[in-house]
Design a protein around this nucleic acid. Sequence first.
DNA 1: CGCAAACCTGTGAACGTTCACAGAGGCGTG
DNA 2: CACGCCTCTGTGAACGTTCACAGGTTTGCG
Lengths: 340, 340
Amino acid sequence: MTPSPGRKKRSTILDVATVAGISRGTVSRVLNGEPYVSDEARVAVNKAIKEVGYVPNMAARNLVRQRSQAVGLLIHEPHALFLEDPNIGSIMLGANTVLSQAGYQMVCLIIDSELDVNRIGQYLNGGSIDGAIVISAGENDPITELIEQLAMASAFVGLPPNHRPLPFVSIDNKKAAAEITARLKASGRTQIGMIASALGRAAGADRLAGFEDALGSSYRPELVAMVEHFSFDAGIAGMRELLERCPTIDAVFAASDAVAAGALSVLQRIGRRVPEDIAVVGFDDSVWAQRTNPPLSTVRQPASELGAQAAELVLAQLRGEEINRGGVYLETSIVWRDSA
Amino acid sequence: MTPSPGRKKRSTILDVATVAGISRGTVSRVLNGEPYVSDEARVAVNKAIKEVGYVPNMAARNLVRQRSQAVGLLIHEPHALFLEDPNIGSIMLGANTVLSQAGYQMVCLIIDSELDVNRIGQYLNGGSIDGAIVISAGENDPITELIEQLAMASAFVGLPPNHRPLPFVSIDNKKAAAEITARLKASGRTQIGMIASALGRAAGADRLAGFEDALGSSYRPELVAMVEHFSFDAGIAGMRELLERCPTIDAVFAASDAVAAGALSVLQRIGRRVPEDIAVVGFDDSVWAQRTNPPLSTVRQPASELGAQAAELVLAQLRGEEINRGGVYLETSIVWRDSA
DNA sequence: CGCAAACCTGTGAACGTTCACAGAGGCGTG
DNA sequence: CACGCCTCTGTGAACGTTCACAGGTTTGCG
């Protein structure tokens, strides 16, 4: 039985060398663009490479170099969230652009089940990637633990779980939440509620904290509905809960745009006018925000920039630079549309 | 200068062997769960592995095994599309589940610029992955060409570009489009238009072909607006164009849900009632479809199943099985909601 | 012209695995 | 008892690169 049916036997650097009539070493030098190789040899090698259809074997190269020129993007999200969160796509593209320009391959790894966790562990430490960007890891994440243990080059998008002292890029969720809440208050609303999500994550908890901060003494716990995820469906559930508890509510800060969209759909169904009867604001400024009716007022976060900076952070570590232990915070801004 | 600052030196299989007091070979056998190893040796090895914190080096293993136990998921989408298309996420998850269960690591590679193309080429043929799943490759895609040349295990989601005879999983876009168009016709609409997208891709072209087929002699070319992408914005542009050309239009088949959502937003803005004045249907049954107001009637396609079957197809090839050259078609169904 | 410096090339040794092979014991059976 | 067959183990040779080193040729300059 042939081992890999249909797949041609690959030619090696030695094949190229013999065809070009020179040695391995010189071929390798040409391949890596090193100096000290004659023009004559260079053209011969390039010709031979085409002739035999040579492509370097990464495994061999990685083995001897002890690095892979690849950076992993670890996505550790529950199913539903991964599909709904439009930020993830932007983060991916931002990171990919930076890594690509630096000559690194970005490989994204989805962690979906416990089965995956072990394999990813192997992948991380097995030399297949030189560094990792981690998106939205939950508390007590085994992968996070592993990364810390291995002291591998890494960057988190959002705060690292359990306050581990690992490099990260984030926005100031608390500050941003406080700002948009203050703005709601300033617009004259008096019964301001919040649909708080994902309190198990820093992003979720901080948005609630900012909300509390901004309201200060006028904060009323019964006006906060806690839901599991940053999802549309969670928004529906949260809004229903708030309406039941306080029918006269006149403003809602939803922990994400998707949540806000869900809330909006409930309000529309029962005939409350937005923003006349009740104001709704979201968080993220994702594509959703511009497509609800009315379009959402929300907090804009620079998603692709988050990915890009995370990539830079990893690259800096790979270059051996000392990086800022305190993490990087990017600016947010408020986008005021028609929903409040 | 230390080569990889901060990163610990990894222990090898030899370290494990010496600590356990036995040879490389036996350690390797334990690692790979082979028979013919004494219980005594097994426990000694496992103990030693924990003690020295051993993790196998993938590069070395891949090199000697000539395979990587990883399958690539190539995403070759223009920026915007990638962010909007919710099917991609489902496809990824479907594929990941299957690959994961088979002990394969899924690595997704985003092809975003020409810069990426070369690097991906290396990745494909460099032994980093054993097979590839390709999502929505465009015509004359260099990656597709490469895959065919290398005769590597592969599966396309959607038809392979340029009618290459490569394995694929798809839905029958033409048939599905014809079905939903026929349904519109049967509901008594007389001026049925279409916003056709991405005609450069089989999916786009086939949906238009199905539309034409269903209308037969009543097909009127002036009622078709052609737009570039399957996007919300394209839907806006397409709907405006149709309204201008034929103000009395009373039904629209949009080439995707996102396009339909865009069209809907235009209609709402100018005060046309949906579905009373004009019916709108989409394609995909993505999350968007349930969140427009009114919710969209659309064609449901089994996105995660597409990913799963593509993964199966790749795995079958890796096992050396002969696969069906004709490709696999999955069933679609019509979901009738309130927009038509 | 002589010597050093720059340029170019080939070679052997690594990188960390797996795999095939050989060989050592133990056990059952003719 | 002898032979063969299992069970278990160790060893050397790959896998395809890169890298350091050594050697050879050319160039530049005093």
